[in-house]
Design a protein around this nucleic acid. Structure first.
Lengths: 355, 355
DNA sequence: TTTAGCACTCGGAGATGTCGAGTGCTAATA
DNA sequence: TATTAGCACTCGACATCTCCGAGTGCTAAA
């Protein structure tokens, strides 16, 4: 985009004023900041409008940035906003207070961003498949009750209590342990076929479906270790913005955001830690065509990745939001102990269990 | 409330018409249903207004039920709406599809109600304290890694992976098992004092903080077994109702509903399985003073109780919503296997206890 | 006791008028 | 040549006004 330096300064001033006030920006409003007369600015504005970077709601209203204008602003003109010491302090404090369990790490982070930015925020966990089981343990509680404990590749531990009316004895438990630890470890859930289960059943002499129950749990545990879950925070904030004062419009977008399956289809940044900005019509979803999305991705340890997306009007404070998301990405990585795997943090409870 | 039968019929007609149309009800609108002339109804309406059961937005608009009017309607006039076969079928279907994990049982039920009623629904788990540990098990993974498995009073199982740089051997694990199973079972978390931990440390000859870690996990597990969590579904639906077309109003109530701590303070029905209705100013919370809440409570097995609350304008279809909530209460009880404890249901995917 | 009729009230929708912010264009100026 | 001041013009926002009709309360007749 080869436009004069002065045009860029004017475009930036318009974007920033409009982001702040939500009112179309007139030539007078910014002439003092730029040291030019309003007439000059009017001429420049007319040219920017011709280039498609600005729009006029109607003759003789001020100018408003077009989607293209925002795009230029984001790509070239946006000041790198770094958070103030005050802000990082507050963010850090809030982060430390909230994040106690890994289960809800992303959801909590989302709520945090929503609180700070006053935009709705969605959080997605995007687990990768390929998880495997490292080890099975069995605890015989009584003749009818068995606890199965599974340790996954990434040190996650899952358990399940099973009841068997037929009764179980120590010998069977030992057999189960041998069979599962040799036959089911190192497999992905797709590899745990029906044949495999049948083979194990005969090996254990099990006709009560015990093997099948355990295998079912194993598969479920693997699938659940990499879930795709969606959370939404700060939905109410959307109504704060004049763009969504029309209840119909607000409702449409809220309904969209409340629909997990739709959120799952939203694009992710190309690289973890990056921030991706989608402006207005750049969004594929019809419902978002006059809104913008700023989305960042986080490594959550292991193969699990998380997405955090801020949704708002195209008149969004892109610089501010990018800054928050980037900062959070950094902090979360520190929180997670560098390259650490999941369970190391996962401790509400005290204790020296951190490596 | 001793009013004539005819007045009751008129009041009921007004409430039901207003619930449906959201427009003030004129005398003509209901005269055909009641077989009376509009003039007669006008006279009766005037008296009902004097009694404080109806209100007039302004002279020569129709009448609108007052909060008191709704109260009379709910207490005395409401038809016992029973769901149609079609409706129960759909509800049941949806229930069976969604509810796969106990973790989110309530949240799922809430989403279900939200979908069916088109009102926002909050779900609260209201765990009771007093949970105890029945049994400890320890699995030694390798010299530095120990899995602790705790079985709670209500058959919930929790586990945690602990790392100890100093190293552990079989003998120590056996000692731990003895000490914890004799010393820590049957206690509430408040009874697990520092002294007790110290005593056990000396008993085990542990100077590495292993006992302290395990005890810490035990306390956390107990606290977490009875969490107070809040979920909100269907927030967007509130904008469908004309009462909340004013974005400010909608935002105020949405913000209220998004605030977990505030939801926690909402009242619960006196008995499990009952439905409680709070109309307009009967709500203590300022933000809800012109809204109504219909709330039901459910036994979720063990000592854990759940609340499901539907929030909407005072012009709410109380009969319909009560019916849905009651039906769901019955169904959930069946789902949970009568008086059964939690895990018996969980025979699909894994239990509510992973970390 | 119920009903029909009638004058009255008041909110809502539409039409009209005014105001002012902002524009484009032109001519003067550095 | 680039910038600026001035001016006529446009058009939305807002206030005012009018009119319409739904719904009321009251009265008199059935």
């Amino acid at each position: 985009m080869d436009i004069s330096d002065r045009k860029k300064r004017i475009l930036r001033a318009i974007v920033e004023s409009y982001v702040e006030t939500a009112e179309p920006v007139g030539s007078k409003a910014i002439c003092s900041d730029l040291g030019l007369s309003s007439a000059t600015i009017r001429n420049e504005m007319a040219e920017l409008t011709a280039l498609g970077l600005l729009e006029q709601p109607h003759t003789s209203a001020g100018r408003v940035p077009s989607s293209k204008g925002y795009r230029v602003y984001v790509n070239e003109l946006m000041h790198d906003r770094t958070l103030s010491a005050q802000e990082t302090f507050e963010l850090n404090n809030a982060l430390r207070q909230r994040i106690t369990k890994l289960d809800s790490l992303l959801a909590d982070a989302g709520r945090l961003v929503a609180d700070f930015t006053h935009y709705p925020v969605y959080a997605l966990t995007a687990g990768s498949s390929g998880m495997k089981i490292r080890r099975f343990d069995f605890i015989l509680v009584d003749r009818n009750t068995l606890i199965v404990v599974i340790m996954l590749d990434n040190d996650q531990v899952k358990n399940k209590l099973l009841h068997f009316p037929a009764g179980i004895d120590e010998a069977l438990v030992r057999k189960l342990s041998t069979v599962f630890n040799s036959g089911f470890t190192g497999l992905e859930s797709s590899e745990m076929t029906h044949e495999l289960v049948s083979a194990c059943e005969t090996a254990c002499g099990d006709s009560e479906g015990i093997v099948a129950s355990v295998a079912g749990f194993a598969i479920a545990a693997l699938d659940e270790a990499a879930p795709r879950q969606a959370y939404l925070s700060g939905a109410a904030s959307i109504l704060e913005h004049p763009e969504y004062r029309d209840p119909d419009k607000a409702q449409r977008i809220l309904a969209y955001l409340s629909d997990d399956t739709k959120l799952m289809t939203l694009p992710a940044p190309d690289e973890s830690g990056e921030v991706k900005i989608l402006i207005g019509p750049e969004n594929v979803a019809e419902e978002l065509s006059d809104s913008s999305v700023v989305v960042a991705s986080y490594d959550l340890g292991g193969d699990v990745k998380g997405l955090l997306g801020v949704v708002g009007p195209t008149r969004m404070d892109y610089a501010n939001i990018s800054a928050h998301l980037s900062y959070l990405a950094r902090e979360l990585r520190i929180f997670l102990g560098g390259a650490g795997t999941l369970p190391q943090l996962g401790s509400g409870p005290p204790g020296p269990d951190e490596k």
